[in-house]
Design a protein around this nucleic acid. Structure first.
Lengths: 201, 201
DNA sequence: GTCTATATTCCGATAGAC
DNA sequence: GTCTATCGGAATATAGAC
């Protein structure tokens, strides 16, 4: 409970924390009220219903997370540079907010059309420019012939999955939380090198 | 509703379907009863509570899924052979039951210690033999020096993540379900080649 | 705006007839 | 074993005082 913030801000902050930890179905309005240091009635005063409050949070979280995936891909670096930046920035981001990816995947799985439409609108995520750049660098002989779509999926998978499965991975490797984070730190280079080595001529 | 099965089997089948689709928190006993073609009271007659029924399903699903990850790693093939078999078999399995991975990750995230302990008992997943084999093949000059733990994480990530994020990936690639499955089929070779190329001398 | 108290709905679980 | 009916509690939401 942060007393310096406005009530509305405290509610949003508390709701985000609770929804991220428990998901829409597992979260209770009482939990959120407790976390914000207020009572349930006030939640309904500010946001009409649990659904409305959840949607507010989901869109905020998803909009600040998903587009970042594609942002790096639209800078004006080389393909190699983009891959390195992506691994570096995205793993940093994910390790800081480890609940976010599974939260988003979950709610997308339950409401595939509704939510994705609200996040991206009617346009597809902006990957065309990146795919085109890859084709050009293939033509120029800088990188080997490669499926751009698979390349994108590979990088994403290698960065995000370990966090999604962290309890399992920590069990297999016998890692505590700090050791896991150190492993993810090393992984920035591990992943970008793996991908870059696979495509450089 | 399958009339040829015993009531208990019908309940288990219905419960699995509903729990996989909605998770523990989102599932309703009424949903399960409807799916099984019976009424709520009978659910409680066969399984004392929702918790007990869920645990039954979770352990069944997790026990038939997680150990398979490590099973291939303990055959007597070469490292290359194991990687190929793994990608082939695991992707086939996942595409057939796409709800399973996110279901398991979700419930593990909410009950990290309880459930993992029940699935694996007190032992760690059996990866030591595989890790040792990798060290030996590195010594023998068959494969490049490599972190066995990262190698395992890489293969797992590349196989499982695309299914976890399938709604997003289908949106980015403009793929319908059938096209997605075809892409996953091609991915069996894509992934094993990527990994094998990265370690062969 | 914020609270207490209460209405309302939903859901897991049980009682009891057949 | 299976059903209908119902209990009891929990959770969302509202009413109304301050």
């Amino acid at each position: 409970m942060q007393k310096d913030l406005s009530t509305e801000e405290r509610i949003l902050s508390a709701a985000q924390k609770v929804f991220l930890a428990k998901g829409m179905d597992g979260a209770r309005m009482q939990d959120i009220a407790d976390e914000a240091g207020i009572n349930k009635a006030l939640l309904h005063y500010y946001f009409r219903s649990k659904d409305k409050l959840f949607e507010e949070i989901f869109l905020k979280v998803a909009a600040s997370f998903l587009p970042k995936i594609f942002q790096v891909l639209n800078t004006d670096s080389s393909v190699f540079g983009k891959i390195e930046s992506f691994c570096d920035e995205y793993i940093s981001q994910i390790v800081k907010t480890p609940y976010v990816p599974i939260f988003i995947l979950n709610e997308i799985n339950r409401q595939p059309k509704t939510f994705l439409k609200k996040v991206f609108g009617s346009n597809k995520p902006p990957v065309e420019k990146f795919f085109k750049q890859i084709s050009e660098e293939v033509q120029a002989g800088i990188i080997k012939p490669v499926e751009p779509f698979h390349l994108l999926i590979n990088v994403l998978s290698l960065c995000v999955f370990p966090v999604l499965a962290s309890p399992l991975i920590q069990l297999v490797g016998g890692l505590n939380n700090e050791q896991f984070n150190q492993m993810m730190e090393r992984r920035k280079k591990e992943v970008s090198q793996l991908i870059i080595n696979s495509i450089k001529t």
